[in-house]
Amino acid sequence: MLELVDLHYTYPDGTSALRGVSLRIDAGEKVALVGPNGAGKSTLLLHLNGVLRPRSGAVQIAAQPISDANIRQVRAQVGMVFQDPDDQLFSPTVFEDVAFGPLHMGLEEADVRGRVTLALDQVGMRGFETRMPHHMSLGQRKRVAIATVLSMTPSILALDEPSAGLDPRARRGLIELLHSLPQAMIVSTHDMRMVAEVFPRTIVLEQGQIAFDGPSATLLADAAMLLRYGLEV
């Protein structure tokens, strides 16, 4: 489904962000990506739909490496949700934002409208079409941000810290939403209790390298390992 092979990335200022990352995610698999700030989690996610291109190594979606030729299909397949919904939601209304992706896929108006409705339904935000993102709560904005990629019917979701900053009730709602979505997903987070509930598999990233990749239960049960990676439940 999605495969990273020996991925290396260096920022233009010379900072080495990823140093040989290899991983595989299968259809429907839910994977948590944890690790300290600056470990390269966001950089890794930005590679998954070609916003960043690796210095060396390859990103393969459905056994196809990302290239200029297939980049637009890849963007429909991998739904990328940014951490700050104010960055993700750049249109004046919810409808326009959720319609942005489908419109760029060149779909017919009726199809666009249908997808918007469906995506908002999935995240429980029907009826907010004409609202302005600025007038909504953080939890609501996070849900709409997820809808903006669901409308492109992706097979993989890449979410950057979806539960950060949410109050307990909004966080609970989000966890249930992530549970209910059928897509494969890779989610960067510091929220280990959410990891325990939603993600059977966890990848620990440290200084641009994978330090651990295995069942979340194994990691969570090993106090020494948690301490070593600076994680707290």
């Binding site: 916003v51 637009r72 990328m80 700050d84 750049f90 942005f100 760029h104 108006e109 666009v112 492109m152």
Partner: peptide, 20 residues
Amino acid sequence: ERIYLAMLARGFTGELRTLN
């Protein structure tokens, strides 16, 4: 810059599309 990345990630190619 972050907004631009978010647009790219959803298939933006420089052309602005809206419903007629």
